[in-house]
Amino acid sequence: MAEEKLKLTDLTKKVTKKEDGERIDKVGIIGAGVMGQGIAQSIAAKGVDVIVVEKDEPSLKSSIQNLTKTMENEIARWSLTKSELKAIMAKIKWSLKIEDVKDCDLIIEAIEENIDVKVKIFKELEELAKPHTIFVSNTSTLSLTKIGEKIKRRDRFIGMHFIQPVPKIPIVELGKEVSTSEKTVNRIKEFLKKIGKRPIEVYEYPGFITTRVMMPMINEAVHILMEGLADAKEIDCAMKFGFNFKMGPLEMADAMGLDDVLSWMKQLWNALGEPQFRPCPLIRKLVREGKLGKKVGEGIYKYDAQGKILI
């Protein structure tokens, strides 16, 4: 192979690079929890560079391990190949410094559902990000406009609600706040197409579609359980087979994490004030007892080490 470093642009003497503000080549993700990992995997799988930022060393380490483990499980069930795992991990960089996302064209926050923390992060990002960079919040229950109000680049701010498990769910709810520009919406739509997700356009309103429909249903199922109308298995079986759901609502609540379910319910209850969003006391009780669902081995159901429901 020839020694000198050749450049393709030397061949045609033409510059064919896209303008800044056009393409999305590098994506920053703040928060390496399950959501952040899933988003990183989905984007990196399509060959886009990703940088994931986490607050401390132990969390970052465990995120890398967890994502690797998740993908290894997928290989074991034949839905991913070893070379795909390698290619995905090669596209993801991990960091403890928020400054490392300064070159990104898109920055997604995937941290806790707390408006003050989210606003603080975006304010910090505003100081270092490139002017054309789009800011994305992964919130589904907080008001995007309330976050947007606090930052300068409101036209380049948008909500993208990914759903767990992110690599397998082919939709993303795209929430515009009042000032989000059409250009931003179009750039994000093009990006979503590239990563194989269908956008569901939603106007800014807490809960969007998915959370707003699912939460009261889960809540009602827990009410039925609490009132003793039927046991958990029967409730899930009725909904699963009666309406062709892949999972019953109680099983789903355990998979999401009852603490998260409770926090979403509270947000919707606060934001919308409708009685159907009042969290069922049994959810509160289980969360108090630390029975947070599948992730801790017990929630509404009990689970074995492989995450299977114990009968």
């Binding site: 020839a2 393709l8 045609t12 033409k14 064919t16």
Partner: peptide, 18 residues
Amino acid sequence: EKIQIDGEVLNHSTAIEY
């Protein structure tokens, strides 16, 4: 000799051009 040239290739059109 075999050569390799690096750079950005936007789409099939730029690829054919190269």
